[in-house]
Write a protein that binds this DNA or RNA. Structure first.
Lengths: 352, 352
DNA sequence: ATGAAAGCGCTAACAC
DNA sequence: GTGTTAGCGCTTTCAT
């Protein structure tokens, strides 16, 4: 079975066997017109019989297309794999890309914060025809790299530096709806634990939080930013406790903080929702196994990703896009963790 | 800031500016000898000033090396991302590869079971210098593809069809130790829910399971194979229950079945470890938040991956390997889910 | 130490 | 409809 040193077949071999020129073989390879039916058939048969497949590298070099699209995840693997957002994005985009003959080249931060390497890796040496990147750590420097290399890109999430070619959710609106729900449920002192205030998404969510509280008289809120660092959550909650300042509801704004927060609450002997209400921005797969079921905002990650890919695909094809961005609505998944009896899902209408 | 249509720099541009030949520039690019110190400096300066980086595609074509190593995960993304094994492997290998200038090209089944596409995708068009592949679905067909294209590869997990170049854990031994632990803890009727019996790892574990039971007089066991399908677990447990046949301990042999199994137990109002003992082969990150802490076998995924990469790296370099496989030991993480009081970790010594 | 030139395997423009 | 030819941007002999 073991076959060593088969000199790899080239288009030239196929051409010689078929007694045609390389050009003709190339045409049938790429399903291009200009080949007689019979010739085409013959060549196809030979290709199949030989089990020949063209050298992609050579194709890339000659055609100046790579068939790769780069996905830049601005986090290190340990981190981004621990929450559901990026894995879902990855799997959706891989499939979407495959159906149109594209391949995903993934680039991530090798260590958290080292986002430059991710950009350089994928852009230098031009191995991709276009890029999809998470916007949360996109700074002017990264942007200038993108522009410098003149590669089409679409961002996941808006960025203060870019106003075209991105997809996003209505962070502000979603957080407003969630907060209002908490207020309606009777929670009066809501603690919102969220990510770094430099992230646009976090800013919007905080703004939605305050907007809701303003409208809902009677409830007040506190915002605590974390760098997605677990010990911090513990400190925050303990600080609040020591000050006799304990909130009656908690909103966790990053799904990877949910589990440790729940554990901390258990250590503090606080029951959900009896002693404290609990909700999160973003869901976890395992929520379906939780009791009480956690109330949460669910992002349309799949749709977001599909939209991003479609935009990029059009950009690569050189099409002019009328809609340079796309904003998708979230849903509010109501569980029992905020004293609701009935589990249900509410579509949050898009901002008018 | 937006710069359009910068014709991309080529090695020729650099050569002209430096007033040397392309060959010389190529030599400094690849840090090869045969260039005068001064010339080298000059060229390096120019490269930096121009922010030039060579076209990888062209480099690949000319040098017949890709700098990519292919990772074949024989599952679809939804599946492999839901348990910790593959993500960890992925992140470890990406880093290991990066430190020696290699890049990972990931290929997965587009739909569960469609493993051929994964193989063809990565091998055809020769985009990789070597391959690391999960062995559990490797059949003769895939193997013949591997050999046909004459690409070096290392398997994660042994395969009945291959006896060289793989890394693995001692599945049999680990399961034996876990089962013995259960027997010692006084469990008498142990149900082992595991994956398809065609997987070599599953076979070994089942064998270890029975071996342990044989030695531990008094305890009996039942094995149920699943296709990693959630509803099945429910059926299995319900069947057992209807037959008045309920086990007093459960071992789940796939981490992605753990959560739903736990939920089912809760639905049945069975407490761990009071009503039923519970253990799993493979751990989950979230175990650290669980109470009772789940007893489990922990695989050395990181070390496994590193070993696999090192082997492949050597193979690609054309080195002759003395050790054609590597077997690593697991650990038994004892929690409270099998009526142990004290949480601790036990290294399982490698088979002598 | 450096340059010249011949490919790597393919595509694409232009002939016929 | 098909063949011819000139590259794509680089590496790598082989001269010098």
């Amino acid at each position: 079975m073991k076959q060593k040193n088969i000199r790899k077949l080239t288009i030239k071999d196929v051409a010689e066997i078929a007694k045609v020129s390389k050009g003709t073989v190339s045409r049938v390879l790429n399903k291009k017109p200009g080949v007689g039916d019979k010739t085409r058939k013959t060549i196809e048969t030979i290709i199949k019989k030989l089990n020949y497949s063209p050298n992609l590298i050579a194709q890339n070099l000659a055609s100046k297309k790579t068939g790769n699209i780069g996905v830049i995840i601005p986090h290190q693997a340990e981190y981004y794999l621990s929450n559901p957002y990026w894995p879902v994005l990855l799997s959706v985009i891989t499939k979407a890309a495959a159906t149109v003959g594209y391949t995903i080249l993934l680039s991530t931060a090798l260590k958290e914060g080292d986002i430059d390497s991710a950009y350089e890796f994928i852009i230098k040496g031009k191995r991709v025809d276009g890029i999809i990147a998470g916007s949360e750590l996109l700074g002017e420097k990264q942007l200038s790299i993108l522009y410098h290399y003149n590669v089409p890109f679409v961002l996941i999430g808006k960025s203060p530096f870019v106003n075209e070619y991105y997809v996003d959710i209505e962070n502000r609106r979603a957080m407003e709806v969630l907060t209002t729900h908490l207020a309606v449920q009777g929670f009066r002192r809501i603690l919102f634990i969220c990510g770094p205030e430099t992230f646009p998404s976090v800013k919007e969510r905080v703004s939605g939080f305050y907007d809701a509280l303003e409208k809902a008289s009677g409830s007040t809120g506190i915002v605590c930013h974390t760098s997605y660092d677990k010990p911090e959550v513990k400190e925050i909650i303990q600080n609040q406790k020591e000050n006799g300042f304990l909130p009656d509801a908690l909103v966790v704004g990053a799904s990877d903080l949910v589990l440790c927060t729940l554990m901390i609450l258990r250590e503090l002997n606080m029951n959900i929702p009896g002693d404290i209400g609990f909700a999160s921005f973003d869901t976890l797969h395992m929520y379906e196994y939780f009791k009480p079921r956690i109330t949460a905002i669910k992002q349309p990650i799949k749709e977001l990703t599909k939209s991003a890919f479609e935009m990029l695909f059009a950009l690569i094809a050189g099409k002019h896009l009328i809609k340079k961005s796309k904003i998708l609505p979230c849903t509010l998944e109501i569980g029992e963790s905020c004293r609701e009896k009935e589990i249900r899902t509410i579509e949050i209408e898009t901002k008018t």
